[in-house]
Amino acid sequence: MLTCEWNSQEGWGQPKITPYQPLSLDPCSSALHYATECFEGMKAYRNWSTGEVRIFRPELNAVRLNKSAARVSLPSFDEQEFVKVLQVLVGLEKRWLACKQDLEATSASTQEDEGDFIYIRPFLIGTGNTLGLSKPVEALFVIVTSRMARYNAQPLKLLASSPAEMVRAWPAGFGNSKVGANYGPSIQWQGYAAQQGYDQVLWLFDEDKKFVTEAGGANFFVVWRAGDKLELVTAPMSSGTVLEGITRRSILELARDRMPELTVIEREFGVQEIIEAARESRLLEAFLCGTAYFVAPVKTIGVDGQDISVPLQFGKSGEYAAKIKQWLMEIMYGDCDHEWGIRVY
């Protein structure tokens, strides 16, 4: 793990890499009482054939973490330095990722899943030993990592939330910041969805218009026909109700660059539009994306006691989700040279 301390008098100290271990916090640390904490989720990938390791767009995670930190009055940090220390840490941890060369070099190695990755969790918390609702004067920055096997999400069932009972985020709130307060309160409704046989919640807000925001903690997309156009639609960042996902941004950029047949639209849209598109056979596919789920197709959306069936052209995915997922994997695992994959030496 990597740690770095900050205080208002001296600023940031020297980053340290140590064995993974518990943190020692004062019981009055502001993160424990006033939710002065934020975090990121990111991944590093190793190419099976060449052994090269890449981190996917870490500079964007640095920018987003600084934005989240500002939202809860935590100190900012140098984003370029963040990428540098991250590369050092991943350079040490990459030994946990399998590759063909390593397996051929030693008979003691066991076969690992091709396509495993390192999950990276940076977080920043307010510390100190003073109770009181005020800006933290001490903070701790930490990065921990974990090796994970390659994950391919099966088609998901989503349950639309009831805006009259619970919303995940609201305009001018903090739904566009990656802070714990965005996630802890949502677990209650997620548990309800699981009891009903669904995998995740499709979060709506506004009792009348029932605008679509996110799915669980992931961004949500639909593809449908609108007149003579094919549209890829997702909720806008301007509403403040969705997180500025790194995967979301990458999908939008790839679609605009490589899918001229699609009109890419970021706008508010209601769940009723999805219902109407399905009823009129205009709904082609839906999927969600994020660091955890990556690109996950949706097969069912439950709304007010009725299930909407979402087409899956390839059985387990829609056409556009499958293409986008493949392009992203090629970049992440270094099967093609691309500026989004930052190499670790």
Rank of each mutant, 00 (worst) to 15 (best):
L158H: 14
F141K: 03
S162W: 05
F77Y: 10
F117I: 00
N61P: 04
A98Y: 03
A164L: 09
Q101W: 01
L131W: 04
I120V: 10
Q101E: 15
Y151S: 08
N61E: 00
S76E: 15
Q154K: 08
P155E: 13
T130Q: 10
F77R: 04
L133A: 14
N129M: 06
R64D: 14
D113L: 12
A169Y: 08
R150M: 08
A164H: 11
Q111L: 08
L86Q: 06
R95E: 14
V90A: 06
M148I: 01
S146G: 09
S107H: 14
G91M: 08
V137G: 04
S134H: 13
C99V: 00
P136Q: 02
T145Q: 14
S134P: 01
I125Y: 13
A70K: 15
N61G: 03
D78W: 05
S68N: 04
A105F: 00
Q111D: 02
L158K: 10
W96N: 00
D116M: 00
L124D: 04
P122D: 04
L65P: 02
D113V: 13
L131V: 02
R168P: 05
Y151T: 09
D102Q: 12
E138Q: 11
R121K: 13
L86F: 07
D116G: 15
I118D: 11
S146E: 14
L158G: 10
S68P: 08
L92V: 11
M166I: 15
N152A: 03
S146M: 04
V83S: 11
R64F: 13
F123Y: 14
L156N: 13
L92S: 11
Q111P: 02
F82I: 08
L158P: 12
L97V: 01
N66Y: 00
S161K: 10
P75Q: 12
D116V: 00
F77D: 10
S107G: 07
V90M: 05
E81Q: 12
L103F: 09
F77A: 06
T130A: 06
I118V: 14
A105L: 03
W96T: 04
K135M: 07
I118T: 12
K94H: 01
S162Q: 11
E59L: 03
E93K: 12
R95C: 06
R95T: 10
K100D: 14
L97E: 01
L92K: 15
L65E: 09
A105S: 13
S107T: 15
R150S: 13
N129T: 07
L103D: 05
S146T: 11
S76H: 03
E112K: 09
Q101L: 14
L140W: 13
L103S: 09
E93D: 15
E165D: 11
L133E: 02
K84S: 13
G91Q: 06
P75G: 07
P75K: 11
P163D: 07
R71I: 01
